[in-house]
Design a protein around this nucleic acid. Sequence first.
DNA 1: CTTCTTAGTATCCTTTTGGGTACTATGTTA
DNA 2: TAACATAGTACCCAAAAGGATACTAAGAAG
Lengths: 119, 119
Amino acid sequence: MDCNCNAYHCPVDTTLNMIGGKYKALILWHLTDKTLRFGELRKLIPQATPKMLTQQLRELEENHLINRTVFPVVPPRVDYCLSDLGISIRPILEAIYTWGTDYLNQNGLEASCSMTFSS
Amino acid sequence: MDCNCNAYHCPVDTTLNMIGGKYKALILWHLTDKTLRFGELRKLIPQATPKMLTQQLRELEENHLINRTVFPVVPPRVDYCLSDLGISIRPILEAIYTWGTDYLNQNGLEASCSMTFSS
DNA sequence: CTTCTTAGTATCCTTTTGGGTACTATGTTA
DNA sequence: TAACATAGTACCCAAAAGGATACTAAGAAG
């Protein structure tokens, strides 16, 4: 229905829509420095059901933030890794992470979610 | 039910929850350099119904990103402005805005939403 | 022929988010 | 005494997001 080819787009909404999904930031973080298989991501993010994990991965792929590589073998093997676009978004994630950590610390809360940025 | 006082918190989720609401980034942006009344925000963000605008403003206030000042006059007058915390989050908004703008331009889309950051 | 493995799907459900329309309170102004 | 202005509320509804559980395909291994 909506092509939106000639519409105006809000850059902030665009960005937030791309990283705002339930497990998207976490997935991008885990893929920062390595390629992971679906099963490895499941173990790293056990709170996500397979349905949710698949859904989030597909959306990240549609937005070209990650690459999905299917190997035609049995049992199946599918690799996920960051695309160049995915790599380019990392500074934003780090800025968000740093602000959030400061905010939590200033409120006496423990900041942690297995999402620690190594610099 | 959930106090979460002793829980671990993900800094990225924390930050995204605070700025991820439908009109929150836009509200923060409009308040960047000035105090605005409710009615002024309505005119600046006409696509938000009064219910939604109120809701988003209340959540921003609960998160201490903005200050709400009620003047006991008739007709009512309520002022909104950024708190120090709200001011501190602006660099993140700018980073998100810049990345989103580049992304849209590289995809041949017009980036705009009356949310242009003056530097 | 049965079991194992992996990367998902299918189905159904609950919760959250967003939205439309109409209504309210109340002192001031005409 | 009736209309006006402002900052909302109330109520009801639709859509989107998230979640639980069970199931599937298909070759390889035993």
